[in-house]
């Protein structure tokens, strides 16, 4: 464990908490993409199956359980409890166009052709594009509540911090995983436009308005 990965995990945890608080407090999931939340649940489920047979550390196990519970809890809040506030008309990204290519690519480019390895690779590829429905929704509505933009900033920062973690581990432990690194860079690049808007607007107290 290194400071970059710890900060990244905490940023990720904070993002998930911000989202749950936002939905619970405002009793509304307006502006949130249910499609992205479904993709995140698929990502965590396919990646954390090793909870059954691999124990790495209490921290690792607890965080995986928290991420799984929070992602399914968010889906429950969005599609059941506060279903009436779900923006079904704008949340129209075809997630099958993200899941299928990630699955095909995982079968072709992987470290080993074994079930758990393929599922892990699929989850890495899918996570890199899982935020697209959310960014698509924000661009369609043209704006986002400031708490939603804080959620997105934390979520984008988590994988950006992981990139520093991979650089650190390359020099400190002479290890690297190209699949995770390439997908992590793609994932972070997708946030760049949002990061720019967040830093130039939201941090100045303005609302996040996308240029129409």
């Amino acid at each position: 464990m290194n400071i970059f990965r710890l900060l990244g995990d905490l940023s990720h945890l904070l993002a998930i908490i911000i989202l749950l608080v936002k939905i619970w407090k405002t009793r509304s999931c307006a502006g949130i993409s249910g499609k992205s939340q479904i993709l995140f649940a698929v990502v965590y489920t396919s990646r954390y199956l090793d909870l059954i047979n691999a124990f790495i550390s209490p921290y690792n196990t607890i965080m995986k359980i928290v991420f799984l519970a929070a992602s399914y809890g968010t889906i429950y809040l969005m599609y059941m409890k506060f279903k009436a506030t779900y923006d079904v008309n704008h949340d129209t990204f075809r997630i099958e166009f993200l899941i299928a290519p990630a699955a095909v690519l995982a079968l072709i480019v992987n470290h080993a052709f074994e079930p758990l390895e393929i599922l892990w690779t699929f989850s890495i590829y899918l996570e890199s594009v899982a935020i697209l429905p959310q960014l698509f929704l924000v661009s369609k509505t043209g704006e986002a509540e400031s708490i939603t933009s804080h959620y997105l900033f934390m979520l984008g920062s988590y994988r950006a911090l992981y990139i520093f973690n991979w650089i650190y581990r390359y020099y400190a432990e002479n290890h690297y995983d190209l699949i995770a690194i390439v997908a992590g860079i793609v994932q972070t690049v997708l946030y760049c436009d949002f990061f720019y808007l967040y830093i130039t607007k939201v941090l100045k107290g303005k609302k996040l308005q996308l240029p129409a």
């Binding site: 990965r5 995990d9 990720h12 090793d50 691999a54 790495i56 550390s57 690792n60 965080m63 995986k64 991420f67 470290h111 080993a112 390895e117 892990w120 992981y162 973690n165 581990r169 432990e173 290890h175 690297y176 995983d177 190209l178 699949i179 995770a180």
Partner: peptide, 10 residues
Amino acid sequence: HQTNISKDEL
């Protein structure tokens, strides 16, 4: 072997 490294990451 490089793959075991990322399996200790979330």
